[in-house]
């Protein structure tokens, strides 16, 4: 018995939280948004979700096994999360093979090429979305009409932000809140995304700083920088439109590509909000969330370097 005592370095106990539990929580938090997507955009949406999750998991498994010769990590569920997030950021009727190309870029190029979970410097799902936008611009901006939008037989529709740029009749706030508008599969229902966000907060998977400051910054700046001069903007429209909710709650809070300290998170979230508004108002792109977050992702190492926490007993010149 003597030599069978196992030795370990303290501490000898561990908390309950594990990587896979966190990822499972993110998947659970995305269920309302996924259901809303399927409800508004139909079977195609469901199919896209399933295909993206399966391809991301497969790409993760295959690339690690054959390309990078590393251990199998699909059980940490992070690939499934990336798949679902990518699906929710795609137009509902995107050809499925394009979605699969996106999954390839997300997992193999953006995530595994840089060393796998925790190593990528931009958000895989967002990075893949932007690659698809560049490669298949037309199909990536064709939006399906949600069920019940302007009569049942409409097949294509513009997004609220598109209408704002191109002109036309804007949808009401209620439709935007519930998700009955054109847009990416999982981004339209603010209600569903907020429910998911509250779940993540309750489960302590995320903290409030990034979503609240990001959304708050967008609201404030879009109000201040209104079309008819200062304080004439429509903040409610801007926080309900486009990918802001899903971006602020699910994409900007991605652990790997957001800062490590509270101070850093605040700077990061403010930067995301600022860039989003600037892109939306002063460029010809209707939507700015993806680019804003991706740009801020690349600033994270810099933010981390300048927001080292104050150590205990460090005194004034810590």
């Amino acid at each position: 018995m003597e030599n069978r005592l196992s030795m370990s370095s303290s501490p000898h106990i561990r908390g309950d939280v594990s990587t896979s539990r966190i990822m499972l929580d993110v998947l659970i938090a995305l269920v309302p948004a996924s259901l809303a997507g399927v409800y508004f955009f139909g079977l195609h949406a469901a199919l896209t979700i399933i295909i993206c999750i399966v391809s991301c998991v497969l790409f993760e498994y295959l690339s690690r096994k054959f390309l990078f010769k590393r251990g199998n990590t699909i059980s940490d569920l992070s690939a499934a999360v990336t798949g679902l997030l990518l699906a929710l950021n795609l137009p509902p009727a995107l050809p499925k093979w394009m979605a699969i190309v996106g999954c390839f870029f997300a997992i193999v190029v953006i995530k595994q090429l840089f060393g796998g979970i925790g190593q990528n410097f931009i958000n895989p799902a967002l990075g893949a979305r932007v690659i698809l936008l560049v490669a298949y611009g037309t199909r990536m901006t064709q939006w399906t009409a949600p069920r019940g939008f302007n009569g049942a037989d409409a097949v294509t529709a513009a997004t609220p932000l598109g209408i704002l740029k191109e002109g036309g009749e804007l949808p009401g706030y209620l439709g935007m809140f519930l998700g009955n508008i054109g847009g990416s599969l999982g981004e339209t229902s603010a209600l569903a995304l907020i429910i998911g966000g509250i779940y993540l907060l309750v489960r302590k998977v995320i903290t409030w700083e990034i979503p609240v400051i990001y959304i708050g910054t967008v609201a404030l700046l879009s109000w201040v920088l209104g079309p008819e001069g200062i304080f004439t903007g429509d903040p409610l429209f801007h926080i309900l439109a486009g990918g802001l909710m899903i971006g602020a709650i699910f994409m900007a809070t991605d652990y790997t590509t957001s800062p490590m300290t509270r101070k850093g998170a605040i700077i990061f979230a403010f930067g995301c909000g600022l860039l989003t508004v600037l892109f939306r108002l002063y460029t010809n792109m209707p939507e700015g969330v993806s680019y804003a977050i991706l740009l801020m992702n690349t600033a994270v190492p810099l933010i981390d370097r300048h927001t080292v926490p104050k150590r205990f007993g460090g005194g004034a010149n810590a």
Binding site: S6, S8, H12, I13, R14, V17, S18, T19, I22, T73, D76, S78, G115, G116, I117, G118, Q119, Y255, T256, S258, M260, T261, V308, P309, K310, R311, F312, G313, G314
Partner: peptide, 25 residues
């Protein structure tokens, strides 16, 4: 009770930063 789960890659969740009473990284 002796079993300790194996180490996996850091996911940069910042839990350790929040937990450190000495304010370290």
């Amino acid at each position: 009770e002796s079993r300790i789960p194996g180490e996996t890659a850091c996911i940069r969740c910042a839990s350790c930063v929040r937990a450190c009473p000495m304010g370290l990284l």
